[in-house]
Nucleic acid binder design. Structure first.
Lengths: 204, 204
DNA sequence: AGACTTATCTACCACTCGATACAAAAGTTG
DNA sequence: CAACTTTTGTATCGAGTGGTAGATAAGTCT
């Protein structure tokens, strides 16, 4: 059987470039011209490999999730619920201001509101954001069983709170806030989290 | 001197309709066809009244800010820093899930990332979001002078924290979260705020 | 080598985008 | 009424949108 002409570009490398464009300009704001230029390929190659603009986004999101799952593995491996929260927020302060990427979070920047042909994009992004919240909640449920989270604590509420702060930090970062600003938000947010740290103030 | 033909539509009513479209679809996602249809006018009337699509957004943002300034007046009138924070977060839980408006916050939904012709839109929105943070910070500085906020507290950090949570709540609301979910986030967030409430857990 | 399969490139599709030229219409003022 | 000013609707502008047809190139297989 003949095998056909091999692909002349690396799919993952191209996806990384596409991811950056979606990240910086959002789904609607990312035109095919921008995408193909960044990826170094022509439209027919893009469509042969990813099917459509939406397919390309989903592939880029899968790759993004893959990256982030490594982060989350480290976060969830924290010894206590408190440490998980600390790791979560501080790793977000770093990643959302990593100069290697556009500022903020792809899952937020990608598009909270879209135009007429792309109504399902916000849902797609929201469902992926929800994954993080679920992982945190389940980890906190476990922490409760382990006894390192108070019986009175509400894992779902804590997970939603952290996930919400993370989204807010994404918005903040995309407005140009620097790393120290995000770290400060993380520190104050942790005062809302039950655990060993008993400083209730937001002093330095 | 002749006065000319009078305008056949009400500017503010039309702006309210435009605001809703920008709110639901973002700046890039809101096409002139959608806007003119919602406003009940034709493109030439739109351009005569607002100059450009960007001019229309700014006019809608001005009107949005006008609405919100009433909210903020109530928020800032809280008797203590703590009460200001409570009013701020709970009023956001309500307004971001008000069925009379699209979910979330126009200043977030409007566009965190935009396409090639609209690079300045995110800046415009970010600068308007920053206003709220400034108002809170100044109120907390005042609270410190008044003695109802601990000397060790950092007004800037607290204001940024609250503003960040508000953005996060906007993202959460736009994903379809209901009012109770936002109220819960507000409640947990308040545990990070110095004040009379000493329950550190997130229990109901 | 020659058959076969797949990728790539050029050129282009129909359509929508934001924005406008022009003339008719609707008022106010003398 | 007639002169003047501004708005309105129709019809359209050039540019850019996501997406594709068809020919050619580049490989693998027998």
């Amino acid at each position: 059987m003949a095998m056909g002409r091999p692909r002349s570009f690396d799919t993952d490398t191209a996806l990384d470039e596409a991811m950056e464009v979606f990240w910086r300009h959002g789904y609607d704001g990312a035109s095919l011209a921008m995408l193909t230029k960044a990826m170094g390929i022509k439209p027919p190659s893009l469509y042969a490999a990813f099917g459509s603009k939406e397919g390309l986004l989903k592939a880029a999101l899968d790759r993004y999730a893959q990256r982030r799952s490594e982060h989350m593995r480290y976060v969830l491996a924290g010894a206590s619920a408190r440490e998980v929260a600390e790791r979560f927020l501080s790793s977000i302060a770093e990643s959302h201001t990593d100069p290697a990427n556009p500022p903020g979070c792809l899952l937020v920047q990608g598009g909270l509101a879209c135009g007429e042909g792309s109504e399902n994009i916000p849902f797609e992004l929201a469902s992926r954001r929800a994954l993080t919240e679920t992982e945190l909640r389940e980890r906190f449920v476990q922490a409760k069983r382990d006894g390192d989270l108070a019986d009175a604590a509400d894992p779902a509420a804590l997970a939603r709170f952290l996930s919400t702060v993370a989204s807010g930090m994404g918005v903040l970062a995309s407005s140009g806030a620097d790393r120290d600003a995000l770290r400060e938000v993380a520190r104050v947010s942790l005062s809302a989290f039950p655990g060993q740290d008993e400083t209730r103030t937001a002093a330095p």
